[in-house]
Design a protein around this nucleic acid. Structure first.
Lengths: 251, 251
DNA sequence: TGTATTCGTTATGTATACAATAGCGGGGAC
DNA sequence: GTCCCCGCTATTGTATACATAACGAATACA
């Protein structure tokens, strides 16, 4: 780094490169199927080749990249079924987390942040129709709710696995909720989702593991229906460029 | 590589280092909690520092290593609950795979290899009591059965996730079956396991998704009971050195 | 004109040199 | 005698140079 001496030393070059590349993929400036040039990545991230390569390996393990047999990496492409499977997969994992939380018991104090999330989302949903900005807040709050719920399982292996499953952006139900936010059905879907959130908290409080698990899986099925709906109405799908999906990805 | 000119060029140094390090961890020559010295890894693997570091990153993402905040990696340590959670987690994932297989339908031809596995295991179980060598074959066959079953889901994201969940050696039910192979209950457990295998094939054939899923989860719960049993009777636990677990790992 | 072979360029895989930081030990002072 | 500070050493993080393999283009031959 002689051309750009002012390097941010507070975060490692590897992490910096990883975040930068992930942003590029998620923002869509790197298209699915496209080969990633290390040299180009070096230029755009500002890190040197070694940390860039480390970041590429991490992103491959994360599932965003795919190794090319002859060498190098390409942005992974996903079929519609890959995405719906990922959503259902995540829901199944979250169902297990909810069951663990219910069976192992959580204190009222631990449920407090969940309920705050719930209330904040309720507040947002009072708007009719919901503005785009509110939808954006919803996505953040919803992600927070799911992360908190996952934590309640107190199971590091499970939390780890859910984190991995959530790395794929479309695995998150709210992603597609946002993608179709202008659809009239959207708000109704969000309200149903809130109902699910309420039920899962109640089930965990009452230590009903099976019910807690069932509702999270139902929640995921709602997200899958949501996805199908969004894909039928191609509108607003371009809000999430990374989701540009290929029909023939893995079939 | 001037000191050791005869390098095996058929496989990349990175992969070679990754396999070598994983073997060392699984064989127990690197103990849980122990810091991994890059320099030492360079000596034992024969690769240079760059591929070794790549391998370390991969193994961290795989879950066998843990990053140390101040730098470097250490072998991850697991608590008893971590292990039982991992088994249940894997069972849940395999349950989903079985359900997908049942719902999406598989041809009789695709079920053939599964049935062959089943028959081969039946053959082994006819021995009373089972020899250690037969147990070893059982572990291989059982792993094959589970891998084939996973494939039937035809869901790349799910298969990928199950592979990740299986990377931790103890997440595999058969690992602990073997660990306690000398226990009188062991053979009975294997026989029950076979019954599960039979039921899941039947459920998939008849396209009963819910039943297929339920039996795989039941199968995992059997493995958890199996684990508990093995841990009570500390005998033969040293057959799997990598399983040396720490009570305070993640609590 | 089409195909095959060869050469050149480019990009990846590997090795090593350099830099920076964290941990540890010794020495000094209170 | 104990505690703190300074310096050294060892190990990690980063950068770059080198080797090798793959892709493409151009030319020659059929």
């Amino acid at each position: 780094m002689k051309a750009v001496p002012e390097v941010d030393r507070s975060v490692s070059q590897t992490v910096k490169a990883q975040l930068a590349l992930r942003d590029q993929i998620l923002a869509g400036s790197l298209r699915p199927g496209e080969r990633i040039s290390e040299l180009q990545a070096v230029e755009t991230t500002g890190a040197s080749r070694t940390p860039v390569r480390m970041a590429l390996v991490r992103l491959e393990e994360e599932g965003l990249l795919e190794a090319i047999p002859s060498g190098g990496f390409m942005v992974k492409a996903f079929s519609e079924r890959d995405i719906s499977d990922s959503i259902e997969l995540r829901g199944t994992l979250e169902g297990l987390a909810a069951r663990f939380a219910a069976e192992r018991g959580v204190s009222a104090r631990e449920l407090e942040p969940l309920k705050e999330c719930l209330a904040a989302i309720d507040e947002l949903l009072r708007q009719v129709p919901i503005s785009i900005e509110a939808f954006s807040s919803y996505v953040t709050l919803n992600a927070r709710f799911h992360a908190l719920l996952t934590e309640l399982s107190r199971s590091p292996p499970l939390i780890r696995q859910i984190d991995r499953a959530s790395a794929l952006p479309f695995a998150s139900p709210s992603g597609f909720v946002m993608a179709q936010s202008a659809l009239p059905e959207a708000q109704q879907i969000l309200i149903i989702g809130q109902e699910h959130h309420r039920v899962v908290i109640d089930a965990i409080e009452n230590r009903e593991g099976a019910r807690a698990e069932a509702i999270m899986r139902e929640h995921a099925r709602l997200a899958v229906r949501n996805l199908r709906l969004a894909l039928r109405n191609r509108t607003h799908l371009d809000l999430l460029p990374a989701l540009a999906l290929t029909k023939t990805a893995t079939d």
